[in-house]
Simulated scan of single mutants.
Amino acid sequence: MARAAGPGPLRPHPHPLGLRLVQKVSSTRLFAKAAPRVIPALDRAVHRLTGGRGLPSARMLPGVILTSTGARSGLSRRTPLACVPEEGGGWLLIGSDFGRPAHPAWTRNLLAHPDATIDRRGRDIPVTARLLTGAERAAAWQAALAFWPLYAVYRSRVEREIRLFRLTRREPGAAAGAREP
């Protein structure tokens, strides 16, 4: 994957022709209807079978498996997600849910329990999620659009504000819920 010039997100890696085809298909309402059921199930199955090394959706966009705590249940929840890797080692997660009307469940989970883990290429990384607001959110949204322009299509389909989270590494020994001063 090529690095972007200066600070900001890394760029998606598909070849230009393949990228245009993926973007065209991904922008359809049929894709938005089917993808939330099909893609995560396929990602979970392949991820298990390959010991964390394979994630089919990562052929289009970089991806992680987010392990968070359920907001209501308190149970561990594993969700395959596209991410926008940031220079410096953080990640942006965009709660677009392919332009569906409701916020995805994983965003509620991170609001209730911001300490989580991501599996990135077979490595578990403890992270803390922070909901972005104001100018920081606006800058992150522009970075997300530069990375994957279809987020604008998904945004045009919803009345809600799409939640954006910045994930930062947490020290492996740090207690869940602990915050730096």
Rank of each mutant, 00 (worst) to 15 (best):
L19I: 00
R169E: 15
H113V: 06
L93E: 12
K24M: 14
F31C: 13
V153P: 07
G89Y: 05
H113Y: 11
A35N: 07
D119R: 08
V22E: 13
G95D: 00
R20P: 00
R121H: 11
A146T: 03
V64A: 13
E180N: 05
T168F: 02
W106H: 05
L19C: 00
H13C: 03
V153C: 09
A102D: 14
L30P: 03
L93M: 12
R160Q: 10
L110I: 14
E87T: 05
A143I: 03
R48H: 08
F147L: 07
L150T: 13
N109C: 08
F147R: 09
L81A: 03
E171D: 11
H13Y: 12
G74V: 02
R108T: 00
R108D: 05
P114N: 14
W148Q: 10
V64R: 04
L49G: 12
I65P: 05
R170I: 08
K33N: 11
R44V: 10
V46P: 01
Y154F: 15
C83Y: 05
P36H: 08
R155T: 08
S73M: 01
L92P: 03
V153M: 10
T67L: 11
G51T: 10
A58N: 07
V84F: 08
A175H: 01
T168A: 14
V46A: 12
H13S: 15
P36Y: 13
T117Y: 11
V153Y: 03
G51K: 04
R157F: 10
V25K: 07
T117P: 00
